[in-house]
């Protein structure tokens, strides 16, 4: 936590420095857009180097982590530089919109990826997860397990003369009504995307409520069911987050390449039409 606060403080300090630097540059009879523009362009090039290094070089895990941290920190600074470059205004023309949109998409996707990885809950859930590829199998196993649990008959019919209360039937009814569908596939995508525990809580509350009306064996069964539901919910969460973690670079990277092409054009146009102010 302290490290995070320190990182934020450093980012704010560097960004402020950047703002001040561009400010005094602009006051010195120069066009500040040239300064923050070049800071932006060089930063983007360095960010691209991170990608190249990741792909081409065989980085040690520790180096890869450092690279990633640098990439993220520089990314934040580039957002500050971008805000300076656009002077807190929206673009006016098509080419500017393309540039602006490209950068915004890259920046948002990057920030999203970082937030995704930074999420405390995700860390707790996913740290021990074997990976996205295993989710389907694990979900199937859970479905099979819960089916077996629910199907097991705990009633002591032989030892009792009186008609039994149908606790098992209640559990089966619960399964048939809600759990079967829940375990049959990925569920609650939107809630997991926003980190909402409400669907899980609704299920567990229902199980807990039922648990108060059943006998001891059924209570144990429902406890098992409850654990399986929680595990299934984690799998759904893992699926959403691991899926997003795999998906955002598909946006981040291609748009970066497009932005690179547009940036080259932008620089050429700027210098070709420069009217003397630098």
């Amino acid at each position: 936590m302290l490290a995070a606060i320190l990182q934020v403080a450093i980012f704010i300090a560097i960004s402020s420095m950047l703002f001040w630097l561009v400010g005094i540059y602009g006051s010195a009879l120069r066009d500040p857009r040239y300064l923050d523009g070049w800071i932006l362009a060089v930063g983007m090039l360095v960010q691209l180097m991170f990608h190249v290094a990741n792909r081409r070089a065989r980085l040690k895990p520790s180096s890869a982590v450092r690279w990633r941290r640098f990439h993220v920190s520089l990314g934040y600074l580039l957002i500050a530089a971008f805000i300076l470059h656009t002077d807190f205004t929206l673009p006016d023309t098509g080419l500017e919109w393309a540039l602006w949109s490209g950068f915004v998409v890259i920046a948002l996707s990057g920030v999203f990826g970082v937030l995704l990885a930074w999420s405390l809950k995700a860390r707790m859930v996913l740290d021990e997860h074997p990976g996205y590829e295993h989710i389907a199998r694990r979900r199937a196993e859970l479905a099979r397990d819960i089916h077996a649990v629910v199907a097991a008959d705990n009633s002591d019919a032989a030892g009792s003369r009186l008609p039994q209360v149908p606790y098992d039937a209640w559990v089966r009814e619960l399964y048939a009504r809600q759990l079967d569908d829940f375990f049959s596939g990925p569920r609650n995508y939107a809630s997991h995307l926003v980190g909402s525990p409400r669907p899980l809580k609704r299920l567990t509350d229902e199980i807990d409520t039922l648990s108060g009306y059943v006998d001891r064996p059924c209570q144990d069964k429902l406890q098992t069911v409850r654990e399986l539901v929680v595990r299934k919910d984690r799998e759904d969460f893992a699926r959403v987050h691991l899926g997003l973690a795999r998906a955002w670079p598909y946006l981040h990277m291609p748009v970066t390449y497009s932005l690179l092409a547009l940036t080259v054009l932008h620089v050429v146009v700027v210098y070709a039409f420069s009217s003397g102010a630098w």
Binding site: M253, P254, T256, L260
Partner: peptide
């Protein structure tokens, strides 16, 4: 695959 999509976008 991601790299190739990026290349195509470029």
């Amino acid at each position: 695959r991601r790299d190739r999509i990026a290349l195509v976008c470029f």
